[in-house]
Each structure stands twice: as C-alpha cells, then as structure tokens.
Design a binder for these strands. Sequence first.
DNA 1: GCCTTTCTTCACCACCCGATGAAGAACACG
DNA 2: CGTGTTCTTCATCGGGTGGTGAAGAAAGGC
Lengths: 201, 201
Amino acid sequence: MTEDGTHGRPGRWRSGAESKQRILETARELFGEHGYSATTVRAIATAAGVDPAMVFYFFGTKHGLFGAAVEMSGNVPPAIESIFAGGLDTIGERIVRTLVENLDKSGRTPLVMLTRSAPTDAQSEALLREFIDREITDRLAALLGTPDAALRAAMVNVQILGLTVARYIMRIEPIASSSVDELVDRFGPLVQHCLTGPTAS
Amino acid sequence: MTEDGTHGRPGRWRSGAESKQRILETARELFGEHGYSATTVRAIATAAGVDPAMVFYFFGTKHGLFGAAVEMSGNVPPAIESIFAGGLDTIGERIVRTLVENLDKSGRTPLVMLTRSAPTDAQSEALLREFIDREITDRLAALLGTPDAALRAAMVNVQILGLTVARYIMRIEPIASSSVDELVDRFGPLVQHCLTGPTAS
DNA sequence: GCCTTTCTTCACCACCCGATGAAGAACACG
DNA sequence: CGTGTTCTTCATCGGGTGGTGAAGAAAGGC
C-alpha cells in the first residue's frame, strides 16, 4: 500500500475535499453497478484508496453516503425542464431522447442507481418513487388534464422503467446497443401513444 | 418453541417431504418479497418453523434453495403456449393478458422473484435473461421473420419488464390496482404496435 | 428385538459487515 | 515556535452470515 509513498502513515496529506470527492465518485460507481446492499463500505473505501473509517468520518453512515451519492440537485432538473418546454404533440420523442441521452452520458446516474436498488431496498424504492411522482407523473398528469391522466402518466412510467432496466441494468440486446435516434424512433411514438393516443374502449 | 409439543427435541417427527415443501414455499415467499441477497437462510428457516441446518440438509446451499424455488417446469410453459396459439394480429392482447393473469395469481411467481433479484444478483440476472430469451424473444422473433424482428421482440421485453416492475415490484399506482381488462386494453395495443406497427423512418 | 436409514437439533466455525474510539501526523494560524 | 484543528490510520467491537459436523430421536426393514 506504499506504491505512491503516501499510504501507510497517518496524518493529513490530502485536502479533505479531495478525499471526500474521491469517495463520492467511487461510491456512485459501485452503488450504480451492484446496488445499495451489495456494495460494502469497505469495497468503496478500498477502490477509492482510502481507509474505511474515512467514509464514516465524512458521511457518518453508509446510509448517509448513499444519500449523498444519489443527490442530484441542479443536474437533472434542467434536462427535465426541456421536456415540458415544447408542445404536447411531440412530447413522447422528447421524453425518450432526454432520458436516453442523459443516462448514456454515465452509467452512474442517480436514476440508474435508484432503479437498480429499488427492487431490494426499501429506502431506494421510496426515493425513486418520490422522484418519479414529483418530476414525471404529477407534471405529466397536470399537463394532460384528462380524466385518465393519472393512468396515462403511469403508463409513461412503465415505459421509462422498462427502458431503463432493459438498456442500463440488464443490458438486453439489441436495446442496449441501439443508437439514441433508433430508440427515439421506436419508443417515441409509443410514449406519445400512452399520453395522447386513442383508447380501446 | 414447544407450543405444539413437537419442537425442541431432535429426531424425526415429520416426513421429510413435508418439511422440504414447507421450506420451499417459505423461500418462494421471502425471495419474492425481498430478493435473493436480502433474504437470509435463517429467516426462511425461522419463518418455516424449522432449524436453519435443515435448509442445507435438503438443498445443500442457499444457491441451491434459490434454484429450487425458482424452478417452474410445466407451470408457465402451457400459459406461454397459449400466447403463440392464436393469430399474429391479436398477439399483443394475449401477451399482456397471459402475463398479468399469471402474475396476479400469486406474487411469489418465479418471474417476479427473478425480476426483483436480477438488478443486484448476477445469477438471477442470468436465469432471467435465459428464460426471456428462450421463451419470449426467440419465439417472437421467429414468428415475425422481419429484418427488425430482434429489435421488435426486445421492445416487447421492455413492455414486460416495465409492467412487471411497475405493478408487482414497485406497485406504482394506478398500474398496481388496475383490473386485468384495463391493462389489456391499455397495453395490448402498445405491445401489438411493437410487433406489427409501422416504423417512423 | 436390533440395526439402518432418515430427519432434526445444537454447537460451532470462519468470515464479513457497519460502526466506534483513540491516537498520531500534517497542516493553518497565532 | 507552539497550539489547535483537520485528516488519516489502526485496532477493535458486536452482530449476522453461509455453512459444517456430530450426535440424538423417530421410523422402517429384517
């Protein structure tokens, strides 16, 4: 552990902010890859080249670290804003494009982390549900205004969840390696149909 | 632990098959509720009113128990067969109806168990992928025969995954409490469009 | 009756987990 | 230079995990 001449001796040799940042990035990576409970504090610390105790020094609990890693104030909101900026008749395309483009940038997106952990971790499920309701369902339903708005918005959630799981978590082919444009072409109309399409009955 | 006069003393007082069955049912319940890694052998044993060692006596490893709990030979196949029994023009409805009706019968369905565990457990992911490929994707793609058949079949997978996660795992409203007919009306055409609908390009 | 097989319990192992507390080294400031 | 704060390491704790081995009790075969 003395490969760079800095490890192995106690004391301060790095700014605290740097270590904190490093832990945070590693945590995002591992939480995003294996979910909350399957990721250990020790694994994060080791991968970040840091003593496990530092994690607790900076973030208190594993809980707290996850909360900090999943925090996304100011990052996603502008992207979501652009969804609602245009007309209702092409909103399907914008939803799919915004979703895929943002998630493609980095696999350690909070949304992917939460979607991965939600099925087995109650806390993650609560956070994900809260986010989806607040940023997607409620706004979509309000925008529609029809009697079945809630159901239509929920159908969009199904599309978002299915797409996220298939492309970023289970990496099902050929969904996982399709281009953004291909997915927009395929799923855009589908999402559009959820919101403004006719009903069977 | 002596409430029924049978616990607390060693020896045989029940047929082995009965205990094995009891463990299996409890395992399906708990695995389906909390996923693979979050469910402990001890929890299953306790809930089944059995010593933890019995689990290993009957199933060898936790691994083996999960495999046995997820086994579904002869149960799902007939249901899937009915999907491909009819024409291609109403297959969307049949897919949704078969899926929802089978999963509604019991939350401890192997498909739900696997879908819940897949995001955080590599073994579950492999099993789920194998099942989906063999029973859904390959057969759908073969039935279609078009150049984009693989992509269209994968889009159906997205619908199935999204619907399963939303209704049975995250229990998103109003998807979770909708009637079977409602879901068939809403998602049937969507799935149908995935398979036989026109393309944007 | 005995003896073997089957089922059940108990005690235990090594390991890993999240978390704590003390103590020391590097820095910042006076 | 000295003092206090910040960062870092280490040793450790209590608890839970999957898994093992021996030993004992009930049942079946002869």
